[in-house]
Design a protein around this nucleic acid. Structure first.
Length: 429
RNA sequence: GCGGCUUUAGCUCAACUGGUUAGAGCGCAGGACUGUGACUCCUGAGGUUACCGGUUCGAAACCGGUAAGCCGCCCCA
């Protein structure tokens, strides 16, 4: 049997890796500017962490986790998401006592045993941010603004912000009761899936695509009408601020995030351009919201928090469609000849690299025409042969590969001036 | 987890529907051109037709199983 990667786990090869690096570098720069610092937590956690945070009845915990017993007889789970590990680390290191407000981001692989789809893998990559320590709606909106800015900087079009609120502890029970009463008469005609949702997590019914339920969903009571005063004021503030920042959104009362820990604000960024369906049903590129009780529920202090997680695989998929990943070529490619001067040519390459330039050569040598062809193929800007003549005259004839072949452009540059000359050319990219 | 579709060269796809040695374009490599590119021309490498088994004189094609991928449901980023 042929060896292959485990189902749902993908190899990333160049040039796709260049696109990933671009996305990651963009994230680090932007998140840094927004005051978020990177946190890195282990790939595995005690199983209990996810059971207690994500929720026992969720699909994630119920059937999608990679759980195993280690040699010390501990139940270990490959992290299926990033919020719980971050919260665990925040509590474990008493970060709340070090500073009143903590803003973190993370970036890395997550694992869920799911059915394969486009943009949906068993090892997938999330970029997420968490802000601990404030209940202020400004924090909710800052996070939303951060995501919007990220998409803008990357040039991702056609993402729309969906917004909803789940209220908090005091509003939930009343709303759930009303919702149950509303759907009760329909239980008999529900599918098994829907029945289970009705029993365990009634709000999820709002998200169902079942034809028999659509009418009832449209007529279902809205949580906005059940909000307690605190939650209502919070939601109003969020909306006011979004308007102030000119961030468009759609109110989506069917948006009920799937993890148990969410409270109040919830939001999603969905890729849904007219016509194009590049991501199929995996259109949600980012999801987030408040989880004011999570830190406390995990044994920490009372610390309200907001956060989001973004599916990078889906994002990269989109970017690949928008523009093909391109290999970044060397600034200068040096052609070599067999002979005593070859060593000097290699020494020159290394010296220029040490000076900070992307300079390349072909270690296989061969005919100069082939080497130049290769230089052109890998996207080099300049090419120069280095042999006996050049070595004697201490001067290279540097060809500009961007010039057409029938109108060649080249310049003679002395070896001494070469590093400086390259620096100047690098400016005029 | 349920229902459906797909799999032929590195990539995109052919193969008259069961018939000899499975082809093409792109890409890759070599040559035309021993010291100068992307054009052109010539040549070449690369396939157990995803894997295992079955039907048949004969299978890339038909049947069964396995694996991987895709679509919808479910769920989620």
């Amino acid at each position: 049997m042929k060896l292959q990667a485990v189902k749902g786990m993908n190899d990333l090869l160049p040039p796709a890796t260049a696109l990933w690096q671009h996305v990651e570098a963009t994230a680090r720069a932007l998140f840094g500017r927004y005051g978020f610092q990177e946190v890195r937590t282990p790939m595995v956690e005690a199983t209990e962490l996810f059971v207690r945070s994500v929720g026992e009845v969720t699909d994630i915990v119920g059937k999608e986790m990679y759980t195993f017993t280690d040699k010390g007889d501990r139940s270990i789970t490959l992290r299926p998401e990033g919020t719980a590990p971050a919260a665990r680390a925040y509590i474990e290191h008493n970060v709340g006592n070090l500073e009143p407000l903590t803003r973190w981001f993370y970036l890395g692989p997550m694992f869920r045993y799911e059915r394969m789809k486009t943009g949906r893998y068993r090892q997938f990559h999330q970029l997420g941010a968490e802000a601990y320590g404030t209940l202020d709606p400004a924090q909710d909106v800052e996070l939303i603004a951060l995501v919007a800015a990220f998409f803008r900087v990357l040039g991702v079009p056609d993402v729309t912000l969906h917004l909803n609120t789940l209220g908090d502890g005091s509003t939930r029970p009343a709303y759930l009761a009303a919702l149950k009463a509303h759907f009760e008469p329909l239980v008999a005609q529900m599918s098994d899936d829907a029945k289970l949702a009705f029993e365990r997590n009634t709000m999820r019914l709002l998200d169902s695509k079942e034809a028999a339920l659509q009418e009832a969903i449209a007529a279902a009571p809205a949580i906005v009408d059940f909000l307690d005063e605190g939650s209502k004021a919070h939601f109003d503030d969020v909306r006011r601020l979004l308007a102030k920042l000119e961030l468009p959104y759609v109110l989506d009362r069917r948006l009920v995030r799937g993890l148990d820990y969410y409270t109040r604000t919830t939001f999603e960024f969905v890729y849904a351009p007219a016509g194009d369906n590049a991501l199929g049903t995996a259109g949600t590129v980012c999801g987030g919201g408040r989880y004011d009780r999570l830190v406390h529920d995990l044994g920490g202090p009372e610390k309200p928090a907001v956060g989001f997680a973004m599916g990078l695989d889906r994002l990269v998929l989109l970017l690949e469609k928008l523009r093909a990943p391109k290999r970044e070529g060397p600034l200068l490619f040096i052609g070599t000849f067999d002979g005593p001067e070859r060593d000097d040519a290699l020494a020159l390459v290394m010296r220029l690299r040490d000076a900070g330039h992307f300079v390349d050569f072909d270690p296989r040598g061969g005919k100069l025409g082939k080497q130049k062809e290769r230089a052109s193929k890998v996207g080099a800007r300049f090419f120069a042969g280095y042999g006996g003549d050049e070595h004697a005259s201490r001067t290279l004839k540097v060809d500009d590969l961007s010039a057409p072949k029938d109108a060649p452009r080249s310049e003679h540059v002395s070896l001494e001036a070469l590093a400086g000359w390259l620096s100047k050319e690098a400016q005029t990219a």
